[in-house]
Amino acid sequence: MAFRTPVRGRPVSRIANAPLSEGPPRSTAHPAPIGSTSPSTSNCNGSRNGPILSDQPNEANIRTLMNQQKSLQQSVARLEKVAKDLTAEKTKHQKKQVPLDLSAAVREGYHEMCEDDIPHWDFSVCFDHPNNKEVNRTLIKNVQAVVDEEISNVALVKRAARTYFKTRKNRHRKVSSGKQAATAAECRQRQRRHNKAHARKKALRNSTTLDEATKKRVEPLLTAEYMSSDETAIEDSSDESARSDSSERSTDEPKTKKKKLIKHTLSWRSREMEEMVSSLDRKVSRRRTPRGKTMCLEVEVGRASTRPRPDNVPEWAAELFDNDN
């Protein structure tokens, strides 16, 4: 195969009788420099010989981004202003807590007014009623004279006086309706159940004879709702023999009385649960000091409690007792 001598600057050409190769003819154009974009390459959308998008930012794109950023900053500023206004509104309506020293001064001041036969509150009307106007003025003046200057604000002292007025009014209403004694007895019973549950739970945790599985099973049942109710009663400490000898004593001698607890057992408890509770009570009793034992009241078993069985009680703790007779 003969070739013509190439000339500088011209491509080499085949002779007329040279055989053609299979496939499309080769391009005789010079290769494009590295980094340049060929017009025959595909664009970003996959179309061949389409328009080429430049990666370099132009002025329109920069202006669009700046406008978007400015709009975003304005939105953030509006949200911050709304949040600040909401916080300020909440703080404005939030009342300042009454200091404990001020509450104590109000109580003491009102007690002194009652002892000095100064007219006191009329609980049949509200705090701001004209019947209580003079009492409020005198009380606020007396309280301001004994408290520190930073808590002697008239509005703050009046709030403390209003709170104490509501407390005394509720107490007066309970006493007038005869519910004060019943409410006090109910509170004492509830507190005794909480104390009993706390002592038994502490004894369970400190026990060395019970395994962890038993502790895990019993501890959820040591709450106030699973404790029996106890109420106080007063009885004469003198027995029958002492009463028979009463003729030898002076008739003016006062009879000594003592308190005791009447225990109302829970009829729905199983025998296993009762044995566990009795075991914990013995542990609690052994840990008491001699002085603590002398302060304990005598316990007497009374009628069964009428409180219903709590929900979700395990079967082993809620089985009924077997009748032995």
Score class of each variant (00 low, 15 high):
113 M>Q: 12
182 A>I: 01
287 R>D: 12
6 P>Q: 04
104 A>N: 13
61 N>I: 14
198 H>F: 07
320 L>K: 04
294 T>E: 06
207 S>C: 10
13 S>H: 15
189 Q>M: 15
190 R>Q: 14
16 A>W: 11
120 H>F: 12
155 A>C: 03
225 E>M: 05
187 C>F: 15
169 K>Q: 06
73 Q>N: 14
279 S>M: 12
56 Q>L: 10
182 A>F: 01
121 W>Y: 02
60 A>Y: 11
57 P>Q: 08
287 R>K: 14
184 A>G: 07
60 A>N: 10
85 D>C: 14
251 T>C: 14
49 N>H: 07
41 T>E: 15
159 R>L: 04
291 R>F: 10
269 R>M: 05
250 S>P: 04
227 M>E: 01
102 L>V: 01
257 K>D: 06
155 A>V: 08
275 E>Q: 14
84 K>R: 11
271 R>T: 13
291 R>W: 12
186 E>K: 11
157 V>G: 06
76 V>K: 12
310 P>K: 00
298 E>S: 08
295 M>H: 05
57 P>F: 05
23 G>M: 02
130 P>Y: 00
106 V>C: 03
157 V>M: 06
19 P>S: 08
83 A>H: 11
253 E>K: 01
96 K>M: 11
258 K>P: 01
89 E>K: 12
183 T>E: 03
92 K>H: 09
129 H>R: 09
99 P>M: 02
320 L>I: 03
103 S>G: 08
136 N>I: 10
288 R>N: 07
15 I>T: 15
165 F>E: 00
77 A>R: 09
5 T>Y: 10
167 T>E: 02
267 S>P: 15
38 S>G: 14
265 T>K: 06
38 S>D: 14
257 K>A: 09
90 K>A: 06
292 G>L: 02
313 V>I: 04
304 A>N: 13
313 V>F: 00
323 N>D: 15
37 T>C: 05
316 W>E: 00
128 D>E: 14
209 T>Q: 12
280 L>C: 08
213 A>H: 07
63 R>W: 01
318 A>P: 05
142 N>D: 04
124 S>H: 10
170 N>A: 08
73 Q>W: 03
214 T>R: 07
77 A>T: 13
21 S>A: 09
160 A>K: 03
17 N>C: 14
274 E>A: 07
221 L>D: 02
278 S>F: 04
146 V>Y: 03
294 T>S: 11
208 T>W: 01
128 D>T: 15
199 A>S: 08
132 N>H: 02
101 D>L: 15
120 H>D: 15
292 G>F: 01
227 M>N: 01
88 A>P: 08
110 Y>T: 11
91 T>F: 12
71 S>W: 03
183 T>M: 01
325 N>R: 07
49 N>R: 08
179 K>F: 02
243 R>Y: 06
136 N>Y: 04
208 T>V: 06
2 A>Y: 08
75 S>H: 11
129 H>Q: 11
7 V>W: 03
280 L>N: 05
23 G>A: 02
53 L>N: 07
94 Q>W: 03
238 S>D: 05
8 R>P: 15
220 P>G: 10
63 R>C: 09
266 L>D: 06
83 A>L: 15
10 R>Y: 07
56 Q>G: 09
108 E>V: 08
